[in-house]
Amino acid sequence: MYHLLKLGPVQLSQDTTNVYLRVTSAGDFAPPVFEHDDEAGVQALLEGVEPSGVSCEPGLAEVAERLGLRVESPPLEVLSARAAIGTFMAWEQRGVAGLGADKALLFVQAATEFYEARPWKHWDDSQPFHISVSGALTRTYEGSVFGGEDGGEGLALYEQAGALKVLMDLQGSGKDAAASQLPAIGVTLDTRPEYAIQALAAAGRAPRLPLPLKTGPSGVSMPSLVEALVLVATLRAVARLDLTRREALSTVVAGQEQMSVRVLAPQPRVRN
C-alpha cells in the first residue's frame, strides 16, 4: 500500500510550495514532489503505481474524491517518515543537513525524550551540569539546561570549566556578542518552520525542531558528527534525571566505537 501525504507550505528562497510524498506502509518513500496545487502533486505521485493500491491522508480528501482514490489515516510508520523528511528539509534550510538524515532521526527521538521530561522545571540555565564523555571522544563539558513552555528549550555544553559564570558575567555587562563566542556545542528546540512542527506533532514527536549548533570565536557553525552524537546522548541522559535522580548515563555508537556520556546534575531548584 502506498500512502500519499502533504508537507507544507514550505518557504523556499523565492517562492512558497508544497511537498507531496508517497510512502509505503513500512516507511519507505519515493522522491518528494514539489507542486503548488494538491491535484498536480497527487497526480505526479500516481505515476507508475496502480491507483487501487494508493490511499490519501484525510488532508487530501478533496482531491482524492475527484481522482477516485481512497482516503484513510496513515499508520505511525508513515507519519514518522514524513516527520523525518520535514526535519531534514528544515535542517537543509538552516545549514545543518551535512550531519545526515540518520542524525536527524536520532535528534528527533532524543529531543522528544528531553521535551517530555521538561528538565527546565527542575533546573535553570545558571546551574552547571557536569558532562563527561568517554569512548570515541574523551573530554568533559560544563552543561546548561534552558527553556520554558513557549519554545527555545535546549541545552548547551561549554568546553571550559567555569564557562557559565563567565557567560553570566558577560551578559550582565551587556557583552552579548562576547558571550555568544564562548566555545560550546548545543541544541535548541525551535517552534519553526511550521510544516516541520506539524509533521513532528502528527507523528507523536515533540512539536519542536531540534537544531544542533556549535559556537566559538568564529561564529555559529555545525557540530562535527561526533559532537552531534554527544548532544544526542546528553539529551537522552538529561531526560532521565528528576528530583530524586541526579546522575544518568547514555551510550551511542560512533563509527565502530561506543561512546558514553555521563551527566551529573546540580541540586534541583523546585519551582512553585
Rank of each mutant, 00 (worst) to 15 (best):
K6R: 15
V10S: 09
V10K: 10
D15C: 04
T17V: 12
N18K: 06
Y20V: 01
A26E: 15
F29R: 07
E35D: 14
E39Q: 08
Q43M: 15
A44H: 02
L45M: 12
L45R: 11
P51D: 10
E62K: 14
E62D: 15
R66H: 05
L67A: 03
R70K: 13
E77H: 03
I85P: 07
F88R: 15
E92G: 04
R94D: 12
G95M: 03
G95Q: 08
R118P: 00
H122R: 14
S132L: 01
S132G: 00
G135R: 09
G135F: 08
A136E: 14
L137F: 01
Y141W: 10
E142Q: 12
E142C: 04
S144A: 11
V145H: 12
G147W: 10
E149N: 10
G151H: 02
G152E: 13
E159Y: 07
L164Q: 14
L167I: 04
G172W: 11
A178D: 15
L182V: 11
D190V: 02
E194F: 01
I197D: 08
A202R: 14
G204Y: 01
R205H: 14
A206V: 06
P207V: 01
R208M: 09
L213Y: 15
K214L: 12
T215S: 12
P217W: 08
S224E: 11
V226N: 14
R236M: 12
R236C: 07
A239H: 11
D242T: 00
R245M: 04
S250W: 03
Q256P: 03
P266L: 06
V270Y: 06
